[in-house]
Design a protein around this nucleic acid. Sequence first.
RNA 1: UGGGGUGUCGCCAAGCGGUAAGGCAAAGGACUUUGGAUCCUUUACGCGCAGGUUCGAAUCCUGCCACCCCAGCCA
Length: 561
Amino acid sequence: MTAKNISLLDNFIQNIIDEDKKNKRYQGRVHTRFPPEPNGYLHIGHTKAILINYGIAVANGGKFNLRFDDTNPIKEEEEFVEAIKEDVAWLGVDWEDRLFFASDYFQELYDYAEELIKKGKAYVCDLTSEMIKEYRGTLTEPGTESPYRNRSMDENLQLFRRMRAGEFPNGSRVLRAKIDMSSPNMNMRDPVIYRIMKEPHHRTGDEWCIYPMYDYAHPISDALEGITHSLCSLEFEDNRPLYDWFLENLNCPEPPRQIEFARLNISYTVLSKRKLRELVEGGYVDGWDDPRMPTICGLRRRGITPEAIARFCESIGVSKSNSIVDVAQLEHAIREDLNRRAKRIMVVLRPLRVVIENYPSGETEELEIENNPEDESMGKRKVPFSREIYIEQDDFRESPPKKFFRLTPGREVRLKGAYYITCNKVIKNEKTGEIEEVRCSYDPETRGGWSADGRKVRGTLHWVSANHAVEVEARIYDRLFSAENPEEHDDFKLSLNKDSLEALTGCVAEPEVKKVEPEDRYQFLRQGYFCADKKDFTKEKPVFNQVVPLRDTWARIKARG
RNA sequence: UGGGGUGUCGCCAAGCGGUAAGGCAAAGGACUUUGGAUCCUUUACGCGCAGGUUCGAAUCCUGCCACCCCAGCCA
């Protein structure tokens, strides 16, 4: 599963495309685009849009463009275009040589505006923004026409050229489409299409002092690139009549068709640029790529693969109903992916010392353990075993609850790939009563974790030889918010989960960990999937991020009591 | 009170007049050198509500109801 073979053949958009192909509309061509505004980082919501656009193009033998919607110089920065390109490429999406910018079309856009003026379809309006707002009317009352609405074509043209020449101050005049001030659709009440902004643009510098609005630039950019199906989110449904209006009035051969679908929401997180920015700027997280962030760079740093993201997007479908997808569905896609591809390694997160009393001290033997039981081709590795080992604190209970299958006094359990051991004694701190060490004996006949007499053991534990242990840090993440839908609260930050990060230092890993490189992913046996941190991991101080824990049936039994 | 949308299992989501797919979650069981994975099994007599058309309706008609979006010189 990669972005390239994502299966998006069964949704309402594909149905529309099938119909268009049957009718030979657009000569059977399919050409989509993803039009981000370079004013922030991409998140998993954008990923859905990217993959739908790209997936639809690929599935139909069509083309896909990446186009930056950079029509507002005061909000946009070059830094973001580079970051967005990197994120989109990382997803496995290939725009080939079709990287565009709305700003590439500033001249054409300007020329089309003159065309509109000449056709009497646009006029220069001198109303202030406050007045324009007043004249627009309300949802239930029609607007009133601007006193400048009926200027002559010549006057409009002169004025517009002077706007372009920089003769007027910011905000003093705008170019408006002449449509219908009494339309029930607010977008059709003579929308502004050009505004004066004496601001340098990240690509065109100070070449322009007037900039087109989205509603005007978008349909034309689509048409200029030969886009056939312009996919966008639901809130643009009311803009579609305007999208069509520009293209109808502008001599466009076969106008692209705008189709809207519901954007992605996921439980226990927020997916809006503004709110994510607030988290970063307020120091609630460690940056845009904090592993708890739903940003693409955050997901990447967390250790989620592009394939898992693609699988997830495929699984949620495409529709027009507003919905919140359960984060468990994302986690499922991640586990499904990593189970297949991640090597297993043993790491004890919260170590408890175990001394195997009948094992010769000073001796070490190497045991062979498979790297991934799901995939024999991933081979085996050697793991050292000796008299003193560490096991997980949770894997020992002095007085075990019901259905506890792990180590407990007098019980025999298996050490993964090693031996059966039986607990003989518990050593506690005299003052605190805390368990400090457990004394066991092993059965030399069970080497490899198997016994010839066929005797059964219920529990299998992961372990690390004390003398060979490598210290590592493991960062355990929980959901960023404790509310299922943080957005429905007055201040979404109030539902931030204070325990979303727990940094575990003093974890111990088997020596295999020395081979790990940043961004490598492993299953820490019996615990979860972990990814070597892209930024903080070093050979000297290995740092891992928990991608997602393994499903934990025992935890559920325990929780149920 | 205007306009545009959406309402099918706890969460997504097919369905396009012929008698409710699938995934996630949940529950039970099998198997297991990860209480992981895998494999079985269970979960909508009903499709927002109320009428109507039809031999037959989630699908067509009428009327309600709920929720989302729109009054930036943002996108």
